[in-house]
Simulated assay, not measured.
Amino acid sequence: MICNFVHYVILNIASLLGLLLMLLVGVAFLTLLERKLLGYVQYRKGPNKLGFMGIMQPFSDAIKLFNKELFYIFKSNQYIYYLCPIVSFLMMLVIWMVYPFITNIYFMNYSMLFLILVMSISGYILLMMGWSSNSTYSLLGALRSVAQTLSYEVSFIFMVLVLMLMSESYSLMDFSKWQVYMWYLMYMFPVFVMFFVSVLAELNRSPMDFIEGESELVSGFNIEYFSGGFALIFMGEYGMIIFFSMLMCFLFMSISSVLMMFLYINMFCMLIIFMRGLLPRMRYDELMYLCWKIILPLVLNYLVMIFSFKIMFTLFI
C-alpha cells in the first residue's frame, strides 16, 4: 500500500511538472503566434528573421528582457514593487491547479470556488503594483484596473453559477461529463458570448484593454516596470490567456481527448488574439454600461430561469 502511495505521489509531481513545462513553452510561443497573426491581419510580416520563420524570437526576447539592468525607482516602495510581478506570475501558475488530472491522486472537487478565489486576489496585486511604483500614471491605471476587474468578476461569477446549476457540481471534470450528448455551447450560446466578453475584460485584451492604456496613461499600471519584472507580468498575462481558453473548453464543451483539447485551446487563443486586430477600443463608460446594464441583468435572468426549471422538474417529475 505504501508503495502504491509513493507511485501516486510521483505521478502527481510528474503531472504537475509536465503541465508547468508545457505552459511555459506555450506562453513563449503564444507571443510569437500573436505577433504573426496581428502581422498578417495588418497586411505585414511578423517576426521572421531569427531562426526558421522567426521560431527563435520568443527565446531571444526572454534573454533580452532578463539580461537588462535593474534600476532603483526613486521613492518607490521597493519591496512591494519588486515582489508584485513575482506574485502575479505565481498566481498564474497556482490557478492552473484547477486543471482536472484524471489519472492521479491530485484532484480538486471544489475547483470552481478555488478559481473565483484566485481571480479575486489578482485585482489587489495590480493595485499594489500601481501604488508601489510611486507614479501618477501607474496609480491611475491601477485604479482603473480594479474598477474593471471587480465589475466583470460579478457577472463572471454569476455565469459560472449558471453552469454550476446545470452540472450540479463545483468540479471541472463533472462539467465535461454532463456535456457528453450535447454541449452547453449549443443551447446556452448567449451565456457563452457573455462569458467570452467577460474573459476579454478579465484578461485586459482589446477592445477592453483599459488597464494598459498607451494613448492616455502612457502604459498603465506597469509604466515603471522593465527588465525581469516586465517579463514576469507579460508571462502572467499570456499564461492567463491559455488558462481561460482551457476553462472555456471545459465549461462549454465535452473534451474526450488531449488532441481535441489542444485544438480547441488554440482556437480560443486565436479568437482572443483576432479581437485585438479586428475591433477598435471601447470607451470606458461603454465598458461599464455593458457590464452593469446589459450582461449582469441577462445573466441574472438566465439564473432565475434555470433555477425555476430545476424546481419545476423536481416537483412534477
Score class of each variant (00 low, 15 high):
S256L: 14
Q57H: 04
S171P: 13
N301T: 15
L161R: 04
M22P: 09
K49Q: 07
S76V: 11
S76G: 08
F74C: 11
I295A: 00
V199W: 07
Y181R: 12
Y181W: 12
N12T: 15
R44T: 05
Y187N: 08
F243L: 02
I105W: 01
V180G: 06
L143Y: 04
M112V: 02
F234K: 15
F101A: 08
Y72H: 14
L251A: 13
F101H: 09
M282R: 08
Q148M: 03
F5R: 05
Q57G: 00
V218I: 11
I13M: 07
V218C: 01
I10C: 08
K75E: 13
K75R: 15
S227M: 01
Y43G: 10
I55V: 10
M275R: 09
R283Y: 08
M166R: 07
L21K: 09
M186A: 06
F243W: 00
I86R: 13
M261C: 13
Y40R: 14
L113G: 08
V160W: 04
E216Y: 07
R276W: 00
L315I: 11
S133F: 04
Y284V: 15
Y110W: 10
V98P: 05
F274L: 05
R281P: 08
P85H: 07
G54R: 02
I13V: 14
T103N: 12
L217D: 02
A62K: 09
V258K: 12
